[in-house]
Simulated scan of single mutants.
Amino acid sequence: MKSIKLFGSTGLLIGAALTLVACGQSNTNAAKSAKKFPEQTVQKTAQKGGTLNYAIETDTPFKGIFDSQLSVDQVDSDVMQFGNEGLFDTDNSYQIRVVLV
């Protein structure tokens, strides 16, 4: 019984010490680098036409599985969403309209 109390109190003290160590130091470099970015973006008029370049940054390679039943990767789902259109759509009053003819 005494050994259980000893291990319990030792674990509690180690947990408290780790919590204090983790919260003790602050990183001021992150706050300084965040101030370098502008707070507002420039508002310009929209252009008609053109090309939109889209990129996804990921640590894992792109598998290229474009079947929603087989795709288990979020990167594949993000890329697949642009070409995976439905047959039907609804308008603001929830009336079904045909998308593909």
Rank of each mutant, 00 (worst) to 15 (best):
G49F: 01
S26L: 07
V42G: 06
S26A: 15
Q47I: 02
G50D: 02
Y54D: 04
T45I: 03
K44N: 12
L20E: 05
K32P: 02
G49S: 04
K35I: 03
A34R: 07
L20M: 08
T41D: 09
Y54Q: 08
S33I: 08
K44Q: 11
A22M: 01
S33A: 14
C23Y: 05
K48F: 05
Q47S: 14
T41Y: 07
K48D: 12
Q25H: 09
F37G: 09
F37M: 09
V21R: 00
Q47G: 05
K36M: 13
K32G: 02
G50S: 03
A22N: 04
E57P: 07
F37S: 14
A30K: 10
E39C: 05
N27W: 02
Q43P: 03
A22H: 01
Q40G: 10
V42S: 11
K32A: 15
N27Q: 05
K36N: 15
Q43C: 11
K35R: 10
Y54N: 09
N29M: 07
K36R: 11
G24D: 04
L20C: 08
S33P: 02
K36A: 15
I56C: 14
E57C: 14
C23I: 01
Q47C: 03
A55D: 06
A55Y: 09
L20Y: 00
S26D: 09
A22I: 02
E39P: 02
F37W: 05
Q43T: 07
S26Q: 13
K35Y: 06
N29W: 05
N29E: 09
G24T: 00
E57S: 14
E57M: 13
S33W: 00
V21C: 06
T41L: 14
L52K: 00
Q25V: 03
N53D: 12
E57D: 11
G49E: 00
A55I: 01
K35H: 06
N27T: 02
Q47F: 00
S26E: 11
V42F: 05
L52N: 08
G50Q: 00
N53Y: 13
K35W: 01
I56P: 04
A31V: 04
G50N: 01
K35A: 15
A31I: 03
K48V: 12
L20K: 01
Q47M: 05
S33K: 09
A30P: 03
T28Q: 10
I56W: 07
A31E: 09
F37Q: 11
A31Q: 11
G24A: 15
N29D: 10
Q40M: 14
K36W: 04
N53Q: 11
E39K: 14
Q40D: 12
Y54A: 12
C23W: 05
V21G: 09
T28E: 05
K44M: 12
T41Q: 08
T41K: 06
Q25M: 04
A34S: 15
V42I: 13
K48E: 11
E57G: 15
A46W: 00
A34C: 07
F37P: 02
